[in-house]
Design a protein around this nucleic acid. Sequence first.
DNA 1: CAGCCCAATGAAACCGGTTACATTGCGCAC
DNA 2: GTGCGCAATGTAACCGGTTTCATTGGGCTG
Lengths: 353, 353
Amino acid sequence: MSSAPPRAGVRPVTIRDVAREAGVSVASASRSLNGLANVTQTTRERVLLAASKLRYVPHTAARALSTRRSDTIGVMLPDLHGEFFSEIIRGADLAARALGLHLLVSTSHGDAAEAAAAMRSMRGRVDGLLLMSPYVDEQALAENLADDLPTVLINTRVEGRPYASFFVDNHGGALAATRHLASLGAAVAHIAGPADNYDSQERLRGYRDAMGGAKGLVLQGDFTEESGWRAGQELARMRPRPTAVFAANDMMAIGCLQALEEEGVRVPHDMTVAGFDDIPVARLIRPSLTTVRISIAELGRRALERLAAAIAGEKPSKDLLEIVRTELVVRGSSALSVGAARTLAERTGEKRQ
Amino acid sequence: MSSAPPRAGVRPVTIRDVAREAGVSVASASRSLNGLANVTQTTRERVLLAASKLRYVPHTAARALSTRRSDTIGVMLPDLHGEFFSEIIRGADLAARALGLHLLVSTSHGDAAEAAAAMRSMRGRVDGLLLMSPYVDEQALAENLADDLPTVLINTRVEGRPYASFFVDNHGGALAATRHLASLGAAVAHIAGPADNYDSQERLRGYRDAMGGAKGLVLQGDFTEESGWRAGQELARMRPRPTAVFAANDMMAIGCLQALEEEGVRVPHDMTVAGFDDIPVARLIRPSLTTVRISIAELGRRALERLAAAIAGEKPSKDLLEIVRTELVVRGSSALSVGAARTLAERTGEKRQ
DNA sequence: CAGCCCAATGAAACCGGTTACATTGCGCAC
DNA sequence: GTGCGCAATGTAACCGGTTTCATTGGGCTG
């Protein structure tokens, strides 16, 4: 039993130090620490004792190098702004910690080239990739997907090799929302999102399909509150004025509501309004917003679990493509009868700050 | 010039493959790829050509092992729920990508033991740690802070060795908010956050100091909307009723507003309300919420930059402790005169979904 | 008691980079 | 023409784990 002091901070403690302290070989030390079967109880105990005595912590990079596993998942999002993306991360984190995995987050704010560089720099750093990039112009980065890196896509179209993908049922949700508004009265207008965004396109398609023969009216927006406000201004001044509007996301619907209020158009009396996403704000504003709910955190969780299964080598039992269902949530902005009482159940959640 | 095909997917391309392809040694290949000075222009070009031809991507774990640098920052938060934490991450990510660093996010949901394990598992994975844990019972994890790992704390008290820390000026903000409400009328009550939370304690202290001699009235909350709602119910039924209430965070203020509305107490006419944090929802609800603004994303950014400097070995020029200033934002919930017109400037921001 | 089998153990190779140190070779001064 | 200095290059050690494969030794059978 050596009596060499730990000398913390001078030289990091390695597995060889532990082995020496325990009086065994590094192989036995490694086996003991990793819980492999072929070591005696006594050996294991001595190694564990030595490890805790020296405050040994394995060096992750070294382990990753020899095992070719990092126990880390890369999460690549277009942005971190807004409630949508933070919810995705939250769901993914939930699943990751349950599986003992770490999360490396990365954004592809800039151009496709930057995104490609970010993806390349993930080699050897992550075991798999969760990728979301609804903008078509970023799709080029698919070429940089290493073909040996398990990947799961969220709302991202990639031509060529089929990846496991999760798609929100944008079309179905938009269909339901538009039909709901149409069933209450008549002329439904639409505030669309960016033209080069896949989600936008699908929601627009759902709107068009719900309108059937009717022509409809589409105003161009860009998913920002301000663009919704401008659309609201425009709508308020039209003659004849549409009696309902379906916005391609909640932030635009909120901007629109504000413009309508400013212009003296009463909601839901003069015009009904619906959005898409059901971000937490939707139920807090007045009138509360009718919208299409996506369980975003659950989407993140499911996608990560699917990825973990792929990494473990499981063949996907289900289809490669999974559709995430949506749900219409009717609230004050389209409730012509009741005042849409907010239930206590809705009030829970959102903790801290 | 060898003509061996890349054979992608079979065996990953290593730097030795690149060296062989370029007809140089691995040392020269490494030097060329890392932009070191001591290589000829021709050598560098041949290596770069070979690398792109073979689609070579360096293995991060291997590099990390030999350089003892991972170019990754660990970010440890108590939770990912809510706008506060997602904003911290956004700010940190902004700074990180500017510095070419990656972000490994981790939460310490559970008990201190779990948090400690999470921290240990970061050895060899990150170059530094951004740590936030306002709950005192998690403070025990400070013992698990590796003493060779650069660390920056956010709103976290740690006894013993002094770490670089960022503290939000909770006391000053609470003082300003309470004084503002008091200046409008009189009796200000307070809805406090969790008793074991450092932020709560400081905001309570600010409230008490603003009240000076006056006794005040403190209701216990836990930072959730629901606890704010319960406090609002209680307040509405008091005789005599306080004429103002300062909640320790925005979510509780929002719950309180809801309860007051239900009970027929008009805001700001019968009672004025203020919160803390200025989360994005605060300006969207009606009446819009008077609150104390913290630039959360900026806090994340500054903390990360400070950490990066510490990793680079820079001695902290300033104090180890930095105070993050707050700003009182007066809105409809305490505006007795004007209707608090929302400016267009306030409407920008929040993009996508 | 000899022989065999199998579990436990240890020595050393390996993962894929970086880098200290030795070596080569070129240009220039004398 | 020879010797010197220095830049470019190559060889091999190293980072800290895991894992293959050889070796040891104890328990059991015949």
